[in-house]
Design a binder for these strands. Structure first.
Lengths: 105, 105
DNA sequence: CACATATTCAACCACATGGTTGAGAATAGA
DNA sequence: TCTATTCTCAACCATGTGGTTGAATATGTG
């Protein structure tokens, strides 16, 4: 779900905006020239992905970043990258060995 | 575009399958009980995201992994994670300092 | 050539997504 | 209380997505 949440440029922009500090829904909506309701939907997606958390202060909903899912996504990617880089390297090694053994190199 | 490509479970499954070696479209489709055309579409998405590459061998299209975009996505995430973890830590530090200065802690 | 195989393409379908608007809920403040 | 502010919800719309099927393309094989 994290990847889906990160796939949208508006949401990434909101996350960027949130690195400057907590923001209300209205403040998040503003730079995108978007309706409250539109921004609210995006925040909901981010919230369900665990990338942000919400705190109610009076009538404003204050949104802040949450780093955990990002760490997880990063771990996932790193693991995969390592795993299949090894695979690709091994494949390459096999090709090289094959070349030598068959005198094609 | 990488995040969008990674957001679909079928596509992640295909990538997983590809870590075991190169696969044809048909071989990629098979474990998902999916039509050729369906698999073909997913492969196209992965290809456009640069996550896989295609080589034609006779009438079969042979698909292999490409690690580069994964590295980039990982770098992106790592950078962000670091960046906003620092922000969050700084925020926490401010709160703590505030507590001390105002005798609330 | 005729036929089978591997794949794409085009058209279609159901549903999700990103956006809007307008109404309604909750809270702040006169 | 009345009004303004902040936000969510429901309904709607256009477009995208994930899937199908059937026809078309390209290649191997008899």
């Amino acid at each position: 779900m994290t990847f889906h949440a990160l796939a949208d440029p508006t949401r990434r922009g909101m996350l960027a905006s949130l690195t400057l500090g907590e923001k209300s829904i209205g403040e998040l909506a503003e730079p995108f020239d978007m309706s409250f309701a539109g921004a609210s939907k995006h925040v909901k997606v981010l919230e369900e992905a665990g990338l942000v958390a919400r705190r109610k202060s009076g009538r404003t909903h204050v949104i802040r970043l949450e780093a955990k899912p990002l760490e997880e996504a990063e771990r996932w990617l790193r693991q995969w990258e390592k795993f299949w880089t090894v695979r690709l390297d091994r494949l390459e090694a096999l090709i090289q060995r094959d070349k030598k053994e068959n005198g094609n190199g």
